[in-house]
Simulated scan of single mutants.
Amino acid sequence: MLQPSAAFMSAARPRTLARWLFVVAALIVAMVVVGGITRLTESGLSITQWKPISGVVPPLTEAAWQAEFNRYKQIPEYAAFNRGMDLAGFKAIFFWEYLHRLLGRVIGLAFAIPLVWFAVKRRIPAGYGWRLTALLALGGLQGAIGWWMVASGLSVRTDVSHLRLAVHLVTALVILSGIVWTALDLLRLNRDGGAAAPARLYRVAVIALLLLFTQITWGAFTAGLDAGYAFSTWPRMGDTFFPAGVQMLAPAWTNAVDNPVVVQFIHRWLAFAAAIALFWLAVRATRAGSRAGFVVVGLVTLQIFLGVATLLTGVKIDIAVAHQANAALLLIATVVAAHRIGVQRKGQLRIGY
């Protein structure tokens, strides 16, 4: 007769869980893309209330649409930038914010319902329940962060706080990273059995991920401050490496997060520090037998070209959205490469992914 722990492991389905997590990860990437479009089309403040449950139903009558539009007319953004907008124009910006929030609800259900089912059916391998529950809790927190971000633009400001925007984006990508890492651990558990320990996070991976997340944070600052419009030349900003006569803020450190020119400057050149760390990680992953290293190099190169193209085109929406989408894909590739290094052991067969 099987012992209780052995019986539990025999019921576990790590490969099935991994596939489910990859589907959720794909939904998060889609949400990041829609979030980018929402920001670039200035649609994020079109819904001025947070209704986690009833908000899933959009306005269905002309009177309901007009009531929603009237609420939007009461916030500073409308008075500053959209005075005179008609109902059709409002419906256009409403669409992207509604789709963004709807995707958030879909992701929540796509994670929570299967998680409960897997738990009831005892399909979750030992040691993974707490990790999946933590990811679920972080997803719930992300919904609150999203409203906290929107609320910052409903009274005094004419847009959302770029700091809160950065928290919102980084939290989404932390969740994405955790989901992909857990799925990879589950795939390895399925392949190698109960003896497979979770992957470790080595120093090279920590450095690469920290620099990538830092670069993404300054990308969010750049988007939130509309700093991408400050200078549309590259590699110089105008005629010089750093433009003269820029009005600086006090205290001096606030320029790094609040001054659009300085923020764009940091985002431009921090990219290359992150690229060096990612190339280093890619080499280590390739030596460990992983094809992810080649993907990381390709996506880093593409990301730099998309960043430059975003500047040179004056933040053309399709290119800027591609830049943000590629950042999410680059993060996934980086996590895969980091995970492969984390399971490499001396004398281990090189079976890469």
Rank of each mutant, 00 (worst) to 15 (best):
F265V: 08
S290I: 03
I53M: 10
A151Y: 10
V204N: 04
G127R: 07
L210G: 13
A88C: 02
A275Y: 03
E68S: 15
A110I: 02
G104P: 07
G228T: 03
R122S: 11
T38N: 09
L173D: 03
T61N: 09
N70P: 04
V335H: 04
R19W: 14
S177F: 01
I304H: 03
W65L: 08
Y202D: 12
F231R: 11
A288T: 05
A30I: 12
L312A: 12
L27N: 02
R287S: 14
F305K: 02
F213C: 05
F111L: 15
I317L: 15
F94H: 12
R287D: 15
R71A: 15
W269I: 11
I207F: 10
P4I: 13
A151E: 14
F231A: 12
L45Y: 06
R13M: 10
T310H: 02
P198H: 08
V33F: 07
P76E: 06
V343L: 11
Y202R: 14
G307E: 07
G298C: 11
R101L: 08
D86V: 08
K316D: 14
D185A: 12
V263F: 02
V33L: 12
V170A: 11
A275Q: 03
V257Q: 08
T158F: 02
R123F: 08
Q215L: 11
H100R: 10
L154W: 03
P59K: 04
W130V: 13
P235H: 07
K51Y: 08
A151H: 14
L102P: 01
G314D: 08
I319F: 09
A282N: 01
I341L: 15
P59R: 02
T233S: 15
G139W: 00
Q215Y: 05
I47C: 01
M1H: 12
I179R: 01
L45F: 10
T214C: 11
A227S: 12
I179K: 01
T301N: 11
A325G: 14
G293W: 00
T182K: 04
S5W: 09
A110L: 07
Q348T: 11
S10N: 13
G228L: 06
L45R: 04
Q3E: 14
V296N: 00
F294E: 11
I304L: 09
V204C: 03
G89H: 09
W147Q: 05
L165A: 07
R105V: 09
A18S: 15
A137H: 07
V56D: 04
I266W: 04
V24T: 07
L21S: 08
L132H: 02
P52W: 04
T301E: 11
D226P: 02
A220T: 03
T214M: 13
Q49K: 15
L281D: 00
I179W: 00
R122D: 08
R268E: 04
T38R: 06
V167Y: 07
L40C: 03
M85K: 02
D192S: 12
S43Y: 00
V24D: 01
V300L: 10
F213S: 06
W130T: 13
V120R: 14
S152P: 04
P4G: 11
Y72I: 10
A250H: 13
R83H: 14
L27R: 04
G342K: 00
A205P: 01
L330D: 00
A25Y: 01
A79V: 13
L187A: 02
R157Y: 10
